[in-house]
Amino acid sequence: MIGRIIDVFDRRFKFKDDFKKNVLDHPVPPRVNFTYCFGGITFLLYVLLLVTGIAAMFFYVPSVEHAFATVEYMTFDLPLGNIIRGIHHWSANLMVVFVCLHMLRVFVYGAYKNPREFHWVSGVFLLGITLAFSFTGYLLPWDQKAYWATKVGVLMPKSIPLVGDFITRLLMGGSDLGALTISRFFAIHVVVLPILTAVFLVAHFLMIRRTGIAKPL
């Protein structure tokens, strides 16, 4: 049944052969062990975050007056809202774990070396993006934890001579943590970072296609 539906589309788009040749039949070195799964797991967690994040956006309002109330509504009143938030929260936590495990695996196996230097570089950017996701997402419920953790975070660049003060103001959108801080963190969290992630992920995956997975030791 599914096969027949795919065939209908394949007659128009002719993607089946290319997909089989370039993705499915791509060679994988022998003796890869379970540590090779960390990258894929990270990607899967990203998909979970995307789906639950989109669901959360149907309810969340990024403003000082409404942020807490909307998250509270989702957490306690909305059917399955707590689960959606929970999956988003725990996926985000595990994401950091698996990004680190993936990087450690790649390091120990020397898989960042020629010809895979830029796989690693794009990966380091993805690590930075992951941490930026965590930091911007942490503020959004606008509870005490969110407020003070963000305050500590945005004041950190302040110690840079000359431009530090400006960078802090730029992050806050003013001289205090307030209306504009929450809207810019929201915009960064739900639009800017996902687009950046997509760009670096596509680069990451295409380069892996080109060179193949590094051989086990």
């Binding site: 797991i41 899967l44 967690l45 979970l48 807490f68 998250v71 509270e72 957490t75 306690f76 707590n82 689960i83 938030r85 929970g86 999956i87 929260h89 725990w90 996926s91 595990l94 698996f98 419920p141 606008w142 509870d143 005490q144 934890k145 969110a146 407020y147």
Partner: peptide, 20 residues
């Protein structure tokens, strides 16, 4: 991993702190 995430979400429900 997905099962673990869902189990965590079920076993450790999200709470709210106090408003900022």
């Amino acid at each position: 991993v997905v099962i673990v995430v869902i189990a965590m979400a079920l076993l450790m429900p999200m709470k709210m702190g106090d408003p900022a």
